[in-house]
Computed example of a mutant assay.
Amino acid sequence: MRISEVARRSGVPATTLRYYEQLNLISSTRTSNGYREYGSEVLERLSFIHGAKQMDLELDQIKWLLEVTATGTCTNTRDVLHPLLADRLREVDDTIRRLEELRAGLARSLDYVATCPDSTRPCQSECAFKALT
């Protein structure tokens, strides 16, 4: 397949396909006139990359996982993938906790600012953010 067909069938833009090729996530051969030719396996790799990106994995992690799946068994892949996903889940849980704390602080601050009485005095920073402490 040429790059335009891979892009059409996968939904991945040609610019991204070229970038993935630079990172050795996918590969192609060149025809005599310089066109990229991809094998049908590229669609499977792109599907894998898409799934890994949905888990917010970084491209270097995805490259490593592609190598593991290419050279290992399903059991080996599972044993490598399980701790990686468990770590990612812990990171997401930590982020959610921090965002919930931020949300609560913003809500308190918003309530405080909304009920501030009118004043002709100069405002000080602790006035707006007093509820955060």
Rank of each mutant, 00 (worst) to 15 (best):
E37G: 08
E37S: 15
E37P: 04
Y38R: 03
Y38S: 02
G39Q: 10
E41M: 07
E41H: 10
V42C: 02
L43E: 09
L43I: 05
R45W: 12
R45F: 08
S47M: 11
F48S: 05
F48N: 04
F48C: 06
I49C: 07
H50Y: 10
G51I: 05
A52V: 03
K53C: 07
K53E: 05
K53A: 07
Q54H: 09
Q54M: 13
Q54V: 06
D56S: 15
E58G: 11
Q61R: 09
I62C: 04
I62M: 06
K63H: 10
W64C: 06
L65Y: 05
L66V: 05
E67A: 12
E67W: 07
V68H: 00
V68A: 01
T69H: 11
A70Y: 10
T71K: 14
G72D: 09
C74A: 15
T75Q: 13
T75P: 01
T75G: 09
N76P: 07
N76H: 11
T77G: 02
R78F: 01
D79P: 00
V80L: 08
L81M: 11
L81D: 04
L81S: 05
P83Y: 03
P83I: 05
L84S: 07
L84Q: 02
L85G: 08
L85Y: 06
D87N: 14
R88P: 04
L89W: 08
R90W: 09
R90S: 14
E91G: 09
E91S: 12
V92K: 08
V92L: 11
D93L: 08
D93W: 01
T95P: 05
T95I: 11
I96E: 02
I96P: 08
I96L: 12
R98G: 05
E100V: 03
E101T: 12
E101R: 12
R103H: 12
A104Q: 10
G105M: 06
G105I: 06
G105L: 01
L106F: 00
L106E: 06
L106Y: 00
A107K: 15
A107R: 15
R108V: 00
R108W: 07
S109C: 00
S109H: 07
L110P: 03
L110H: 12
D111V: 00
D111I: 07
D111Q: 03
V113H: 00
V113C: 09
A114I: 00
A114Q: 15
A114R: 12
T115Q: 10
C116K: 03
C116I: 07
C116V: 02
D118F: 13
S119G: 04
T120S: 15
T120W: 04
R121D: 14
R121N: 12
P122N: 01
P122K: 02
Q124R: 14
S125M: 10
S125V: 13
S125L: 15
